[in-house]
Amino acid sequence: EINATPKGWSCHWDRDHRRYFYVNEQSGESQWEFPDGEEEEEES
């Protein structure tokens, strides 16, 4: 699962919740759901 993350994302293990979470390396935002690989940036 770690190697399957889309480009620009990293996968980390949360010991407290015993599950993986994903970090967007560009924005620093994290989420529980597996990233779909589409950038959802809304910068103007």
Rank of each mutant, 00 (worst) to 15 (best):
K7Y: 04
G28W: 00
Q26H: 07
D36S: 13
N24G: 02
E33Y: 00
E41Y: 03
E29D: 05
E29P: 00
S27K: 03
K7S: 07
R19E: 04
R18C: 08
D14G: 00
G8C: 04
H17Y: 09
R19K: 11
W13G: 03
S10M: 05
D16Y: 06
S10L: 05
S44V: 15
H17P: 00
H17T: 12
S44G: 15
H12Q: 04
Y20D: 02
F34T: 13
R18A: 13
G28P: 01
E40T: 15
E29K: 13
F34D: 07
S44R: 13
V23W: 04
W13F: 10
E42S: 13
E25Q: 13
S44L: 08
G28A: 02
I2E: 08
W32N: 01
W9C: 02
R15G: 12
D16F: 05
W32T: 09
G28T: 01
H12W: 02
F21D: 06
E38A: 13
E42C: 12
E40L: 13
G37P: 12
R19W: 00
E43C: 15
Q31E: 01
F34A: 11
E29V: 09
E41D: 06
C11V: 07
E39M: 10
E25W: 01
H12N: 06
A4P: 15
E25K: 15
G37Q: 10
I2S: 15
E29W: 02
R19N: 03
W9I: 01
Y20K: 06
E1A: 09
E33V: 04
P35E: 03
D36C: 10
W32R: 05
D14S: 09
Y20N: 11
E33L: 04
H12T: 04
H12V: 08
E29I: 11
W13S: 01
P35D: 01
S30A: 13
E42T: 13
A4E: 14
V23E: 07
V23R: 11
P35I: 05
S30R: 15
H17N: 06
R15H: 15
N3C: 06
G37E: 10
G28S: 03
D14P: 00
G37R: 07
E25M: 07
E42R: 13
N3E: 15
S27A: 02
W32M: 07
I2W: 06
Y22K: 15
A4V: 09
E25H: 07
E38C: 11
E39G: 11
Q31H: 04
N3L: 07
P35S: 01
R18N: 15
V23K: 14
E43W: 08
E43F: 15
R18E: 15
K7E: 15
G28Q: 05
E38Y: 06
P35M: 01
F21G: 05
H17S: 12
E40Y: 15
E41L: 10
G8R: 02
A4R: 12
R15W: 06
G28I: 00
N3K: 15
K7G: 02
W13M: 03
F34N: 02
E38F: 07
Y20Q: 06
E39A: 14
D36Q: 11
W32E: 07
S30F: 11
E38D: 11
Y20G: 02
F34S: 06
T5W: 08
N24D: 05
Q26T: 10
F21A: 08
E25T: 09
Y22N: 10
S27D: 03
Q26R: 10
E33F: 03
R15Q: 15
T5F: 06
E41I: 09
T5A: 05
Y20T: 06
E1G: 04
W13C: 03
H12E: 11
R18S: 10
S30V: 15
E38P: 14
P35W: 01
G37H: 12
Y22Q: 04
F21Q: 07
E1V: 03
N3M: 15
N3H: 09
H12Y: 07
S10Q: 08
E25N: 05
E29C: 02
A4S: 06
G28C: 02
H12L: 06
E41C: 13
R19S: 05
W13Q: 03
S10W: 00
E40C: 14
E1L: 10
R18P: 02
Q31F: 04
E39K: 14
A4T: 12
W32F: 14
S44T: 10
E39I: 10
E38V: 13
W32C: 06
E33Q: 12
R18M: 09
E39F: 09
D16C: 07
Q31S: 06
H17D: 08
E41P: 13
H12A: 03
C11G: 14
E42Y: 09
D14F: 01
E42K: 13
D14W: 00
Y22T: 04
S30K: 15
P35H: 05
E42F: 05
D14C: 05
R19G: 03
R15S: 13
E38Q: 14
E39Y: 07
F34K: 15
K7R: 10
T5M: 11
N24C: 07
W13A: 02
R15A: 11
E39T: 15
E40Q: 12
E41H: 10
H12D: 02
Y22P: 00
G37S: 10
Y22A: 02
W9R: 00
D16V: 07
Q31K: 06
P35R: 01
D16R: 06
F34C: 12
E40M: 09
Y22I: 03
G8I: 03
